[in-house]
Amino acid sequence: MFGNSKDLLGIRDLPVSEIQEILDRTAEMKKIVMSQNRKTTDLAGRTVNILFYENSTRTRLSFEMGAKMMSSVACNISASGSSVTKKENLIDTARTIDVMQTDILIMRHGLSGAPHLVAKNVNAAVINGGDGTHEHPTQALLDAYTIIEKKGDLKGLKVVIVGDIAHSRVARSNIWLLTKMGAKVSICAPKTLIPSGIEQMGVTVYNDVEVALKDADVVMGLRIQLERQKGGYFPDLVEYAKEFGINEKRLKLAKSDAIVLHPGPVNREVEITSFVYDCDQSVIDEQVTNGVAIRMAIMKKAIER
């Protein structure tokens, strides 16, 4: 259970106590991930089905690995290889998976709210693995865990998120989570990529990356989807990188012990340079490792109904 819900659909409705509980439980899961005996019986006899309507490397694999380490029967189905290509609708697809006695249904979909629609129509606990431009709650949780590992606490930290905020579910989930947990969140992008009314989420909005990065404890880059330049949001990737990319020089504007996060996949030399990706301050690889642990903690919580 997540609050009063069987499902984990977003951070917006997740109480602080539940966020804290997931983060606390993740430490124990991480020990298992880092051990040479990666096996628990937490999900023994349980079924986990992973339904993705969009491509994914990190989210899908970490859920599947985690589910298998916890001894569940875990299966993967991609929309492109399913009856979705025969025009089966979302509810019917989800119901079909549900009646095979699915305990946990992990879902990713390109349309905001799709997991909510599914959640209303199935008995399985639905975990949102990213929906449209709405939320990506498990990413925000793993980001928070990674920051806490390095910084000890979220409270009072200056976190700067740079990139395509308008189309980013990662940004939205992170803003919910980080502000709930007491961090000071800033966002930075060209005005065309700042969505209407976002300051009401409690963030400070910057349009100059060099001002935004000043004294940051945490710098988070977001992927610039290549198709956005066609949408007329900015002239081209070269100008974007020049004006908003995070490079070695700009990283120095942040605190000297600042850490760099990115949810991946990265366009090297666009939103962040290779130098920044690979430098000592980067925790991008740790994020991926922690992704397995956080998703194990979430799945364990999902069957506690």
């Binding site: 905001s112 709210g113 709405h134 939205r172 209407s196 009314g197 009401q200 989420m201």
Partner: peptide
């Protein structure tokens, strides 16, 4: 309608 609510729901707004 475009605004805070469309932003947090991730739904394309109509200004």
């Amino acid at each position: 309608n475009e605004g805070y609510l469309s932003t947090i729901l991730g739904l394309k707004g109509i200004n």
